[in-house]
Design a protein around this nucleic acid. Structure first.
Length: 455
DNA sequence: GCGATCAGAT
DNA sequence: CACATCTGATCGC
């Protein structure tokens, strides 16, 4: 996981490590199993080491994307014909057997460390410590190939979300998924453990946990963008700044609304045409002259969307003289989006030339969505997937507060031993003051401010 | 001298 | 813009 993941990215008590492949300083536990949720660069640290030699479980799409991964410098060298062969960062993870001209096959040195599992298919895995777990992958609504992991074994059931966006339709898909239904919380809190099971923990994508205002659904965001785009002249060219994996919903919405293909660079085209989404496989083109819609290489755009004057980057004309409009994904709450839509419509109606359009496509859930998601399961605990290192655990305390009301109802006091109850009471008393303070800060940069005061 | 790791800017 | 990516400095073998 990105820097600041609790427990060195282990899913305790299992010796399973997620999205971290380099040995951390002071790390005592040796991973018995590696999981990879998706291929954004901060989730694959350590995998580039040629010395890495363990099996990694991921989705088929993540495997495809990882093996095709090219850093920008390599793409640039190749496209400018300074280098014919492309160095793919993760090619050492899959080395094919050598097939000779006489038909014989040499397996020496061949390997395939990426073990791709299909979605919604519980798979029993034997770990290197002889323990067995069942792992199930679910689409995470974050970027192509991104998954959540359900881990079931002798030490309990844990759901690791990876990075995900739990918008309303996603919650519905969870509720209707037969592999997760056993873990859904029931209205009757006393039925715990009898007719349903309880998740011991949810390892949660907390990238946007400090945002307490609602953000538009991806469908609302793309629908609004399309509205605006349709108000612009039919001759306008668009550069869609999809600068990282996860903005494909924008490309798909544009392609569908305008019944047009989208110009992609060689790298994006290769990735999109080799993953499982049939729409994504179909919407790209390598013919730059065939479309007004471009998502080609950001720093080496084709002539149709290259700026006419590099010294005036705000120009609205392309090198070919076309009216040029940028489409930029941003994070924006629902209220700001509504007013942005209104304002922009007025600007267009007033004859103003538009240089850029924003689209609030969030790939992470803000706090309200996270609380709804956790409440579906009422797990015993929530563990943040990432923390801000500078806060020294203060954000973890705040996060505990935020989800206290979404967890399993603890057993009545009579079922706990007297000493344990006393200990709990003392701890609770100690926590109360701080928790109240933290609760008041939820939703702003308050936690960060407080930590800076303490530092 | 290289790779791993981190801070900082975009 | 964004919170993923790139860059350059630093550390350690």
């Amino acid at each position: 996981m990105p820097p600041g993941a609790p427990y060195n990215s282990f899913v305790l008590p299992y010796r399973i490590r997620v999205d971290a492949f380099a040995t951390a300083v002071g790390q005592e536990m040796v991973p018995a199993l590696h999981l990879l949720s998706h291929t954004h660069s901060d989730h694959i640290t350590g995998l580039q080491a040629k010395s890495f030699g363990s099996v990694v479980i991921c989705s088929h799409d993540a495997k495809e994307m990882l093996l095709r991964h090219e850093v920008y410098a390599e793409r640039s060298l190749h496209e400018n014909e300074y280098r014919a062969e492309i160095n793919r960062t993760y090619s050492h993870l899959k080395i094919d057997p050598l097939i000779c001209s006489d038909g014989s096959t040499y397996y020496t040195g061949s390997r395939d460390l990426l073990k791709a599992l299909p979605l919604n298919t519980p798979t029993e895995i034997e770990m290197s410590n002889d323990e067995r777990v069942t792992v199930t992958l679910f689409d995470a609504n974050h970027c192509p190939g991104a998954v959540m992991f359900l881990i079931q074994g002798d030490q309990g059931a844990i759901l690791h979300t990876g990075d995900f966006r739990a918008e309303p339709w996603f919650l519905d898909s969870i509720i209707h998924n037969p592999f997760l239904q056993p873990y859904l919380a029931t209205d009757d809190s006393h039925s715990d453990g009898t007719f349903n099971e309880r998740l011991d923990a949810i390892y949660l994508d907390t990238a946007c946990v400090m945002s307490s205002s609602a953000v538009p659904t991806k469908a609302c965001a793309t629908a609004g963008l399309i509205q605006l785009m349709k108000l612009l002249p039919p001759t306008a060219y668009f550069f869609i700044n999809s600068w990282t994996w996860g903005y494909e919903d924008v490309l798909k919405a544009i392609s569908r609304a305008f019944r047009s293909k989208i110009h992609l660079d060689r790298y994006k085209y290769a990735v999109y045409t080799n993953i499982s989404d049939p729409v994504l496989r179909a919407i790209g083109t390598r013919d730059e002259a065939s479309t007004r819609f471009h998502a080609c290489e950001r720093f080496e755009r084709c002539d149709h969307v290259a700026v006419a004057d590099p010294h005036r980057p705000t120009t609205s004309r392309s090198r070919k003289g076309d009216h040029l409009v940028y489409v930029n994904p941003v994070t924006m709450d629902t209220t700001s989006w509504e007013s942005y839509l209104q304002e922009t419509k007025l600007r267009i109606a007033g004859g103003e030339t538009i240089h850029s359009l924003l689209v609030p496509l969030s790939r992470h859930s803000p706090l309200p969505e996270l609380q709804s998601f956790v409440s579906l399961f009422r797990p015993r605990r929530v563990v943040p997937n990432t923390l801000i290192p500078g806060l020294h655990g203060l954000d973890w305390r705040a996060i505990d507060c935020m989800f206290a009301g979404c967890l399993a109802t603890p057993p009545p006091p009579s079922e706990i031993s007297a000493s344990a109850a006393a200990q709990l009471a003392t701890q609770e008393q100690m926590d109360t003051e701080m928790d109240t303070a933290l609760q008041n800060l939820v939703g702003g940069d308050g936690v960060r401010d407080l930590a800076e005061k303490w530092a």
